[in-house]
Computed example of a mutant assay.
Amino acid sequence: MKVSVISMMAGINKRPRTLIFDLDNTLIWDERSVKEAFEAVCLFAQQEAGVDGEALEALAREEAERLFRSYDTYGYAEAIEVTELEALWARFDRGDHPMLRKLEEIAPVYRREVWRNALSRAGADGEKADDLSSKLAERFMAERRSRPFVYDDTFTVLTALKPTHRMVLLTNGDPSLQQEKVDGVQGLGEFFERVFISGHYEVGKPYSIIYEKVLEELGEEVRDCWMIGDNMLTDIKGANGIGMTSVWLNRYGREPIEGMKPSYSVSSLSELAALLA
Rank of each mutant, 00 (worst) to 15 (best):
S176A: 15
E212I: 04
E143K: 09
R145Y: 13
R166T: 02
N240G: 10
F149E: 08
K237D: 10
E190D: 10
L177A: 07
L215S: 01
V195S: 03
R254Y: 14
Y252T: 14
V150W: 05
D174T: 05
G184E: 10
R145Q: 11
R145G: 15
W226F: 07
S246I: 03
E138Y: 10
Y201Q: 14
G243V: 01
P206Y: 09
G241R: 01
Q178S: 07
N240A: 11
E216K: 07
I197M: 10
F155G: 01
P148S: 08
T234H: 11
E220A: 01
S134G: 10
Q179S: 11
P163S: 02
P206R: 04
I257W: 12
G259Y: 07
G243W: 00
P175S: 06
A142M: 14
N231G: 10
E217L: 02
G184F: 11
K213A: 08
L136H: 09
D224A: 01
F192Y: 05
N231K: 15
L215N: 00
I197H: 08
E193W: 07
E202I: 09
L215R: 00
Y252L: 14
L161T: 00
V157M: 04
V182D: 05
M260A: 12
Q178Y: 08
V203D: 10
L188V: 01
R147W: 04
A239W: 00
M260I: 15
P256K: 11
V203L: 12
T156M: 10
S198R: 07
T234D: 04
C225M: 02
R147V: 03
I242H: 02
S246Q: 07
G204S: 08
E220W: 00
S134T: 09
A160P: 10
K261L: 15
G199E: 13
K181W: 05
V247H: 09
M141D: 06
V214A: 04
N231P: 06
S208G: 12
D153S: 06
V150H: 06
N250M: 15
K237L: 12
V157Q: 04
E216C: 01
R251Q: 13
K213E: 12
Y207D: 12
G187F: 10
Y207K: 13
G243N: 03
K261R: 15
Q179N: 12
R223G: 04
G238C: 01
V203Y: 12
H165K: 05
V157R: 03
G238K: 02
S133R: 03
N250L: 14
V222R: 00
V203S: 08
T171M: 03
L218R: 02
Q186M: 13
Y211I: 01
R194M: 06
E216G: 07
I236W: 06
F196P: 07
R251S: 08
T171R: 08
E138T: 14
K181C: 06
G184R: 13
L215I: 04
L170I: 07
G253C: 15
L161I: 04
G204T: 09
T171P: 03
V185C: 02
G219H: 02
L233I: 07
T156G: 10
V195P: 04
M232E: 08
D224C: 00
G253Y: 15
V168W: 00
D152P: 05
D153C: 06
Y252Q: 12
T171W: 07
Q179R: 14
A142S: 13
V182G: 03
L249N: 09
P148Q: 09
F149W: 11
